[in-house]
Amino acid sequence: MSHEVADRIEIRLAGEGGQGMILAGIILAEAASIYSGKNVVQSQSYGPEARGGASKSEVIISNGEIDHPEVIEADILVALSQEAYRKFHKEVKPDGLLIVDADKVKDADERAIRIPITHLAFETTGRQITANTVALGVLVGLTGIVERQAIEKAVAARAPRGTEEMNRKALEAGFAAAAAVKK
């Protein structure tokens, strides 16, 4: 029913608390709104604990008015943990896109695109914590939901001082992984 409202893309980013999926949602929302002029609604839910537990961030992007602020049936799901995958993979459109961390989500649907996101983050920057930025590179690289320039600007604007280069590399690694899948 979400597609009965024209021009509405629903994205869900999910993982464990502490993996930075909520921040990834905010960065994607800023890329789509501040740096692309589209309308967005970003929301999140998480348990009361700061680490662990399932955490999800939702971004809805449209050129028009966005009414219902939550995902109804996702166009895109990015899952960085088995639990997040299990919890949300059924709420993806039949023709939707599933992106999973190949090492963390062992048990996934055949249509899922498997990319070792966390491993790539560690390999590229030496820090697993940049997995959320790698995930954004993969997501935008595969879908083009925002221009590459827009996500680059949004990541740079949110990167803590001194980590701009690290995050740029992480984003780049995500784009490279997406390009490899597309070939």
Partner: peptide
């Protein structure tokens, strides 16, 4: 909570 925590441009 929805309006309080959601982000919009």
């Amino acid at each position: 909570e929805v309006i309080g925590h959601m982000r919009e441009p």
